[in-house]
Computed example of a mutant assay.
Amino acid sequence: MDRLKNSWELVKASARVLAQDKELMVFPFISSLGVILVSLTFALPLFLAGRVENLIEGGGQVAGMAVLFLFYLVQYFVIFFANTALVGAALIRLRGGDPTLGDGFRIAFSRFGPILGYALVAATVGMILKALSRKRSGLVRTASSLLGLGWSIATFLVVPVLAVENLGPLQAIQRSVSLLKKTWGEQIAGNLGLGAFFGILTLAVVLVSLALGVGSIMLLETPWVAVALAVLLVVFLLVSGLVQSTLNGIYTAAVYTYAVDGRSGFFDETLVREAFQSGS
């Protein structure tokens, strides 16, 4: 119960930061739009050429592997670039400043090379994990899942490190691991809290929308209310996703701030300390 309470308080604290800078949601929007455009750029020509199935089934072929690696590289770069801009702007707010969208983009562009290098590393790791996940052995697939989890934990603070510190991608990963050693234990609590909150909220909204939609069709004998509810539900899901992504970025920035200099800006430092206690 204490963990749930702390997670809820972290969600509220993150929301207070977002309330100060609502424009931060622009960065996840750009990231999502970029991912869609990248996916279409790769998928549409392959589909028109009739090679989608060959790429999926024949992943061991050199050409297929090369295309898949390039897709990972471009997609990761878009995501990391937007996240660096978001976290960089959030760090300015957490340290008492008043960030603008321009500040976030300036930080991301200034770290263009390291972000590209980190995307290259992440794409390589992604290819290895994908290859392992395709093995028939259940033990290998389990190992792949564990390695993926370990990679996520190890790189938890890479983006804020890239945004602030003048380090290359490999050094940033090492720095992330070093910082997480200071904040081990329940280091995932905040993200789990955010995920649980938005998951429950989304489920509740979907169930209510379905009930209202079915009820309107049965009572009013017209589908228009259900159609309107469906449109509203889609809008809610899109906005909710943007808010959650933004809050996750703010949370990451706050954890980095706390790990580096022991303060967390808008966050209640006691809650952050409890969520990221030493595991020893």
Rank of each mutant, 00 (worst) to 15 (best):
R134W: 04
R134V: 03
R134G: 00
R134H: 02
R134D: 09
R134N: 05
K135L: 12
K135G: 02
K135C: 02
R136M: 01
R136W: 01
R136I: 02
S137Y: 09
S137Q: 12
S137W: 11
G138V: 10
G138T: 13
G138R: 06
G138H: 04
G138N: 13
L139C: 01
L139S: 09
L139I: 15
L139H: 05
V140M: 10
V140R: 04
V140A: 11
V140I: 15
R141T: 07
R141V: 06
R141W: 04
R141D: 07
R141S: 06
R141Y: 05
R141H: 02
T142Y: 12
T142D: 10
T142H: 06
A143T: 06
A143L: 15
A143S: 08
S144R: 05
S144E: 11
S144Q: 09
S144K: 05
S144Y: 05
S144F: 04
S144C: 05
S145M: 14
S145W: 06
S145F: 09
L146I: 15
L146Y: 11
L146G: 04
L147E: 06
L147Q: 03
L147V: 11
L147C: 08
L147W: 03
L147I: 13
G148C: 11
G148M: 13
G148K: 06
L149H: 02
L149N: 10
L149K: 02
L149D: 08
L149A: 09
L149E: 09
L149W: 13
L149M: 14
G150R: 12
G150N: 14
G150C: 14
G150P: 15
G150T: 14
G150W: 15
W151H: 08
W151F: 12
W151L: 07
S152R: 11
S152A: 13
I153P: 15
I153D: 13
I153Q: 12
I153L: 15
I153S: 10
I153C: 12
A154G: 09
A154E: 15
T155F: 03
T155H: 02
T155N: 07
T155S: 12
T155I: 10
F156H: 10
F156N: 10
F156T: 09
F156Y: 12
L157D: 10
L157F: 06
L157H: 06
L157G: 01
L157M: 14
L157K: 08
V158M: 08
V158S: 01
V158D: 06
V158Y: 00
V159S: 03
V159G: 04
V159K: 01
V159A: 01
V159Y: 01
V159I: 15
V159E: 07
P160E: 09
P160R: 02
P160Y: 13
V161G: 01
V161Q: 08
V161C: 02
V161L: 08
V161K: 04
V161I: 13
L162F: 01
L162C: 01
L162A: 04
A163N: 05
A163V: 07
A163F: 06
A163K: 00
A163E: 14
